[in-house]
Simulated scan of single mutants.
Amino acid sequence: MDNKKVKDLVDEALELNKSLFLIDLSISVNNKIQVVVDGDNGVPLSECIRISRNVEHNLDREEEDFSLEVTTPDIAHPLSEKRQYIKNIGRILKVKTAEQEFEGTLAEADQDKIILQWKAREPKPIGKGKITVEKTVTLEYKDIKEAKVKIVF
């Protein structure tokens, strides 16, 4: 299976809806094509079907048999694109760097970095007891090893 041809067909389908973007494209040795797309405002099922049809109708099953799956990233899938961070502003993220782990609300995201905020209980500077303080950390994308959206019930 020609990886470039499949990618071109997916890109062609994504051109029709600029709010969608490719997360992952893989083709296994037995020609199982997996396409993972996300969108700035989510991805309706109709868009997955449209992308699937664009790929399927332009590949010849007589030439090479294949299976095709077009999906959106599931909740266990880590964030990988800057657009995904921007889309998730206001949600709680669990972010791992080489040195430590952070969990907080994604306050800002731009092309270079993200800003997480959370509340923590710390001992009072004077006297007994604890106070609640606001914590903030700025992380550059290059320092992030993994980031996942945390679902709160």
Rank of each mutant, 00 (worst) to 15 (best):
L106D: 08
I27G: 06
K7S: 13
F66I: 09
T132V: 12
E134R: 09
P73I: 06
L139Y: 06
E56D: 15
L45H: 03
K145Y: 00
T138M: 04
A13D: 13
G90Q: 05
G90S: 03
Q100G: 05
K148G: 08
L68A: 04
A13N: 04
K130Q: 12
E69L: 15
E99C: 02
K18V: 13
G129Q: 12
N54A: 12
T72D: 02
R61G: 08
I86H: 00
K150E: 07
K130V: 02
L79W: 01
R53A: 06
R53L: 11
V6R: 06
E146M: 14
V149S: 04
L20V: 09
R121G: 03
Q111P: 01
I27R: 11
G129L: 12
D110V: 06
N88M: 12
I51W: 08
D24S: 14
N54P: 09
D65S: 14
I131A: 11
L139R: 09
S46F: 07
A76C: 01
E99V: 09
E69D: 10
S46W: 07
Y85R: 03
Y85D: 03
K7W: 10
T97Y: 00
I92M: 04
I131C: 07
S46M: 02
G127A: 08
R121S: 12
T132M: 15
L9D: 15
I144E: 04
D110N: 15
N88I: 05
H77F: 15
T138W: 00
K18I: 10
K4H: 12
V133D: 05
I27Y: 03
A147K: 11
E134K: 10
L45I: 14
V70E: 08
H57A: 09
L25E: 04
E63F: 12
E81A: 10
L25K: 08
E134F: 01
A120K: 12
L9N: 13
D65K: 07
E81I: 04
I92E: 06
K87S: 05
E62I: 00
R91T: 13
D8Q: 15
K82E: 13
P44M: 08
Q84G: 14
E62G: 11
Q84S: 11
K142V: 11
F102P: 00
I131F: 03
D38L: 08
V6S: 11
K4P: 04
S28N: 03
N3S: 11
D112E: 15
L139K: 01
S80Y: 03
T138Q: 06
I131M: 14
Q84C: 05
W118V: 01
P123H: 10
E56C: 10
L22H: 03
R91D: 12
D65N: 13
K113H: 10
L93Q: 00
L116F: 01
R121L: 13
T105Q: 09
K4W: 07
P78S: 13
P125G: 06
D112K: 09
E146D: 14
I33G: 10
